[in-house]
Write a protein that binds this DNA or RNA. Structure first.
Lengths: 199, 199
DNA sequence: ACAGCCATGTAACTTGTTACATGATTTT
DNA sequence: AAAATCATGTAACAAGTTACATGGCTGT
């Protein structure tokens, strides 16, 4: 939902045309995750379908301007005032992968962890180098870019720390103590979700 | 891709029928992200379409067993041996949101950060409490669950740290120094993606 | 003239996700 | 007998993403 809502939030500042929206999004996210132009028009159509934006005027150059509606403004306000729920809400690809790999008898978890750790660490170093070149950040665009890179650095650090943590915990017990065989008995549902949802 | 590949990896251990697959997935991920049953059959159909699994025998109870194919096995091997690329590859909802919010003139970024920080911190405390109840983890299922919760703890910690970091950096300069007005000039593409991809 | 960017759009597709229908079996 | 769980499936949709088609304009 972040692309959709980001575009909506930009439109909340004033009407834009499609191509312009991409540039606005790219600048504001430090061009870190460049957006395919087609997706803009796609998303605009869907936002219009949902009544959050509407086609506005066309200027002399032929630019098709889109403007936000009242429901759209409400949507943006709700987005900005409510936190992003990730921990319990969204699936964590790496956590899933490692949990599954660790509980599968035939899998060399240690190797999976090693490979991931190496890649994550390499990434972290590159990120730190990139972050370093951007500390002199003068303009707002550089600052925005710098914040995004920092978030990646923090996330990568946490990832490496967690990998080490997992490696330690797994090394304390033999591989077979972790493995879960395919149950031939009737499957029972596991314990109910214990992780709080905080919604 | 993680659900799809997780199911495939489980099938790599031996044939399963749909309903069983859900239980296997749930147990192995600590029932943290319970899977809608329908998605299983959905995913199996798509895996079959892609030639990664095939319908196998039906037992006396009427259970439809699915088995992995050679291409499927190769896919699992590739998945396990290659790292998950998140930092530069996948979009970070919160980073996008904050970067956009911070560069939008009319937005009270500080309030957004405060709200997020409060929610993330509350989540973190709940997670730590949940993790604490699980440290005595005896069985493999408890251990798997514990690892997943730990990953959430580490991620939440990093999130809070980053939020504080952002707050500090933003408080150093006035709000207007961060804002990026909608450009009326011809949009130019920003700097090319500087963040390394490590692929 | 030709290459390349500006600009709008369309069509197809991916994974994930939910709601619903339908029976069989099991438990209470 | 009723309720719950087991088990398989279908239909629809969301958001993201890409490839492609089509013009106009601009710089070389």
């Amino acid at each position: 939902m972040s692309v959709r809502l980001s575009l909506l939030a930009i439109l909340d500042q004033g009407p834009c045309y499609g191509y312009q929206l991409r540039a606005e999004f790219d600048r504001r996210t430090g061009s870190t995750w460049p957006l395919n132009v087609g997706q803009i028009y796609n998303t605009l159509d869907r936002l219009e379908r949902d009544g959050l934006v509407e086609k506005g005027a066309v200027d002399a150059q032929g630019h098709v301007y889109w403007q936000i509606t009242d429901p759209g403004r409400a949507e943006v306000a709700a987005w900005l005032s409510s936190p992003v729920e990730r921990a319990a809400g969204t699936r964590d690809e790496l956590a899933i992968k490692l949990a599954v790999a660790a509980t599968l008898p035939g899998v060399d978890v240690a190797a999976v962890i090693r490979a991931q750790r190496q890649a994550s660490l390499a990434q972290l170093h590159e990120l730190r180098a990139a972050a370093f070149t951007g500390v002199d950040a003068g303009g707002p665009e550089e600052l925005a870019w710098s914040l995004v890179v920092d978030s990646m650095v923090f996330a990568a650090e946490a990832e490496v720390r967690w990998l080490d943590h997992v490696e330690t915990r797994l090394s304390q017990r033999p591989q077979h103590a972790m493995a879960i065989e395919l149950s031939t008995e009737k499957p029972k549902r596991g314990r109910p979700v214990k992780v709080p949802t905080t919604v």
